[in-house]
Computed example of a mutant assay.
Amino acid sequence: MDDALEAPAAPPDPRASDTLARLAAGTLLLTGTAWLARAVWEIRLYSAGEPASGPPDQGGGTHRPLDSLENAYHLVSAAGSLLTLLCAAAFLMWLWRVRDNALALSGRPPKYAGIWVYLGWVVPVVNLWFPRGIVADAYRASAPGQRLPAVVNVWWVLWLAGAFGGVLQQRSTDSVIARAYSDIGPLLTADVAVAGAAVAGALMVRTVTAAQTARLARV
């Protein structure tokens, strides 16, 4: 995990950091809005009730034509997925920047090697704490002696709750529609957790970036 071979980072550019922070926070809020929209459409599906023809996936490779509400949910779901990908790219750019800033400000190698900025989200088991650890390590290196902001832990708990809820669900859109008709509770719980994680993540991004900016001003 330790990365003793990290090269010295260039002096941090506060303007670039702030730009990436705004981009990451903005896409996080948009993604949270998209997941709330999913929740609204799932409530609409639940309220409408399953059509007499049954779920969209009839089994055996047979799919019935979708009604207008189901088609709309497909569009909402696709938009949410696209925003999530854009958000992930913006967040990773920001995370790499704050990690480099922390190296330049503290002069000590980061606790986690650079590869974990990407793999830490997808490798089983370590994805339960590595991403939070990278953020926490960058903050502590940038603001020595300061307590880790509570929003970091709030963001991570909500993210894990949303991710765990997603794992328990069948993730094809038609299967989600079928589940919305009969068992909407887990869907709404996961959607609200992801939306909450997005809002907390946006606050976390601004908090960590502000701490680095304040340290740069003092330096």
Rank of each mutant, 00 (worst) to 15 (best):
A141D: 05
G80E: 12
G145Q: 07
A217S: 12
T189N: 02
A25I: 10
G133M: 04
D67W: 02
L69R: 09
Y118P: 00
G61Y: 12
R64Y: 10
A138W: 03
A78C: 00
S53L: 11
E70G: 09
L188P: 04
A52W: 06
Y118N: 01
V125N: 02
A39E: 05
W156M: 03
A202H: 07
G32Q: 04
A211R: 11
V98Q: 06
N153Y: 10
P12H: 04
S175C: 00
V117M: 12
W156D: 04
V208K: 08
R15M: 07
D137K: 09
P186L: 09
Y181W: 15
R218L: 13
D191C: 11
G145E: 14
G166P: 02
L95Y: 02
A193D: 02
S81F: 12
D2F: 14
A7P: 01
D67A: 07
R132P: 03
N127K: 10
S68N: 10
Y46D: 08
A217E: 14
I115W: 14
A210T: 11
S47T: 14
A89E: 00
I177T: 06
I134C: 03
N127I: 04
V122Q: 03
A104V: 01
L20F: 05
A16C: 00
E6K: 05
V126S: 02
A78Y: 14
D57V: 06
P8S: 08
I177W: 09
L29N: 05
L20V: 09
V192W: 11
A90G: 07
L28G: 06
W41H: 10
L160Q: 11
I115N: 00
L23N: 10
H63F: 15
A72N: 11
R171S: 08
N153K: 00
N71K: 13
R97M: 13
S68H: 12
T213Q: 13
K111G: 08
A37G: 13
